[in-house]
Design a protein around this nucleic acid. Structure first.
Length: 550
RNA sequence: GCCCUCGUAGCUCAGCUGGAUAGAGCGGCGGACUUCUAAUCCGUAGGUCGCAGGUUCGAAUCCUGCCGGGGGCGCCA
């Protein structure tokens, strides 16, 4: 019994299929096994009878009763009782022995519980942050970094192979503009109007030897500035706990003869998707659903940013990644159609390119929306944020809401309320268990969690809080699946809080240390160990630490 | 103007591939510390799920329109 809920679901599906006249395979029933909102409605409930009703032409409640008979026969002593309710729900109450066996499974799986649940493991390239090294990281990048890193962890736990990559522009007009800005500052001049105005540009000017030389090569200055900024970005990411397997330089797409970009263009031209017009080279993206065709090579002969992106997508594919995930800022969503079109023009399945739109982090001060402009140097850096509210609180704050939703980030509020961040509640639960287990001693804990441990509870039934906590633990695999399939790390953030709440309720209601009789204490120790393991696991998926003391 | 996206409690947000009486945290109010860690717990107040239609046995969830916030419509990145 590796996943007790999956087994229960399978038993239910089996019973449902035997009620159906047709072959079991003709259409998969979307039957659900869920936790009812009200405890008195049982441990689990299923809508199976309501789905079967139209197929069987019978009343849902009658079908539910029939289903209950069959399920009861299949489960035996595992099922304590059942009831038909409402429009045709079948409510199930599981027995104490089922709970004991379920906890055993969770404990045996340890931190691998909920692992490798995906039916179709893939090789995925997840590219994120990818902020240009023309400034240090800002709060918005903090959201992208937390999102991408956590998503990678979740996808891996789900069984995919994931590589994380940071793409940076070290070529092109923005980089040149940075170089010009640095040189201007070095010469004591104002940066160009469309250049970078921030104070850090002056600092860079001081750090780069020879920047003040009027004859100095702007590209060389820009190259030095990019190198310095990239190091700062990497340092911030390390501090933030965000790991990238690779940093991919745009420049490499332009290097060599033929360059990767040349090869991508040749490929597209051979496929008949390219045409020349007004001195420029165009990609016929309208053939794949875009509203207008896009320029790849300007009339000056210079490739566009888009052309580099196309070459980059082709490169990712050549490296053997079947799926490409691409979280991008909401300001880039207009870019999605052309990327998907280009991907298709390259001969790929557009479903395998997934741009994910991450909404903004709006900084609010008082009731004013703070202006953010990298060029003008008006921004709050991610480092400043981490200084003020810490890595764990920042990550949790960034992850608790859906990526599809704008975060209004009141800086003053964040400062004053950072200690009230739910993340500390979750961490506290973990630390509390550590303390408790420490009090018991390793030997006692090992004895309690051993496969031969006696957990029998002759005195009576399991406490409701114990049942709730075990049910919560059991739901991890489906929560991981949801978070992974919907690319929604915030699901894990919400789950972590719920898990911590369920543990705390158990802790409140059920004395662990010194509980009598001994098998009861053993069972509660084992349950605490399972809860601790899973808290650490889920916090790990969020990239948040799991302290043993607070 | 066209397109995308969001709108749920005072605040920050879950719930959205249709199901039973819409949830949590924070904040408010009233309680609980010789404890298994009070970074906690208990009780309580607080909602026209933006508005209006539609589909359905059933809608916060799906469809349409409107209102409001944000974003996008470059041979910029």
């Amino acid at each position: 019994m590796s996943d007790p809920l999956a087994e229960l679901r399978a038993a239910l599906a089996g019973a449902a299929n035997r009620l159906r006249p047709g072959s079991p395979a003709d259409r998969e029933l979307a039957l659900r096994l869920e936790r009812p909102k009200l405890a008195q409605q049982g441990d689990y409930a299923t809508n199976a009878a309501m789905l079967l009703a139209p197929l069987l032409g019978a009343a849902p409640r009658d079908i539910a009763a029939e289903l209950a008979e069959r399920l009861s026969a299949a489960l035996g002593a595992e099922l304590a009782s059942h009831a038909v309710a409402g429009p045709g729900f079948l409510n199930l109450v599981m027995s104490d022995s089922w709970y004991h066996a379920a906890l055993r499974s969770v404990l045996d799986a340890g931190e691998r519980f909920g692992c490798s649940g995906t039916p179709h493991p893939e090789r995925i390239l997840l590219e994120f942050v990818s902020a240009n090294p023309t400034a240090v990281l800002v709060t918005a990048s903090g959201r992208h970094a937390a999102y991408g890193d956590s998503l990678a962890r979740i996808l891996r736990h789900y069984g995919h192979t994931v590589a994380t990559e940071y793409y940076f522009n070290d070529a092109g007009s923005q980089i040149r503009r940075l170089g010009e800005s640095v040189r201007a500052r070095a010469l004591g001049l104002e940066p160009p109007e469309d250049g970078y105005q921030g104070a850090y540009v002056s600092e860079l000017a001081g750090e780069i030897a020879g920047a003040a030389d009027p004859d100095a090569d702007v590209d060389a200055i820009a190259g030095r500035a990019v190198a310095i900024l990239l190091e700062r970005i990497k340092a911030t990411l390390v501090r933030y706990g965000v790991h990238f397997e690779t940093f991919f330089s745009e420049r490499t797409l332009h290097a060599g003869a033929p360059s990767p970009l040349d090869r991508a263009l040749a490929h597209l031209r051979a496929a008949g998707h390219i045409y020349d017009h007004a001195g420029a080279v165009w990609l016929r993206t309208t053939a794949f659903g875009d509203d207008k065709d896009r320029v790849l090579l300007r009339s000056s002969g210079e490739p566009t940013y888009f052309a580099a992106d196309v070459a980059y997508m082709a490169n990712k594919r050549e490296r053997g990644f079947e799926r490409q995930l691409l979280p991008v800022g909401a300001d880039h969503h207009g870019y999605v159609a052309r990327l998907k079109a280009a991907f298709q023009a390259l001969g790929e399945d557009p479903e395998l390119l997934e741009p994910l739109i991450i909404q903004f982090v709006h900084l609010v001060e008082g009731d004013q929306r703070a202006a953010m402009s990298k060029r003008r140097g008006e921004f709050v850096t991610l480092d400043a944020l981490l200084d003020e509210i810490g890595v764990d609180a920042t990550r949790y704050f960034m992850l608790q809401s859906s990526h599809e939703r704008t975060i209004d980030f009141n800086l003053d509020l964040a400062r004053s309320q950072s200690s009230e961040n739910p993340v500390f509640y979750i961490q506290y639960a973990h630390a509390r268990i550590s303390s408790m287990l420490g009090k018991l001693g390793t030997e006692r804990v090992l004895l309690a969690t051993d496969a031969r441990a006696d957990w029998s509870s002759p005195a009576g039934e399991l406490h409701g809080s114990e049942r709730e906590l075990i049910k919560r633990l059991l739901s991890l695999p489906e929560e991981v699946a949801e978070a992974a399939e919907r690319r929604a790390p915030h699901r894990m953030a919400v789950y972590a809080l719920e898990l911590a709440q369920d543990f705390t309720a158990f802790y409140r209601d059920c004395k662990v240390v010194g509980a009598k009789p001994e098998p009861t204490e053993s069972f509660r120790i084992a349950l605490s160990v399972a809860a601790q393991t899973q808290l650490a696991l889920v916090l790990g998926l969020l990239g948040v630490s799991a302290p043993d003391a607070m």
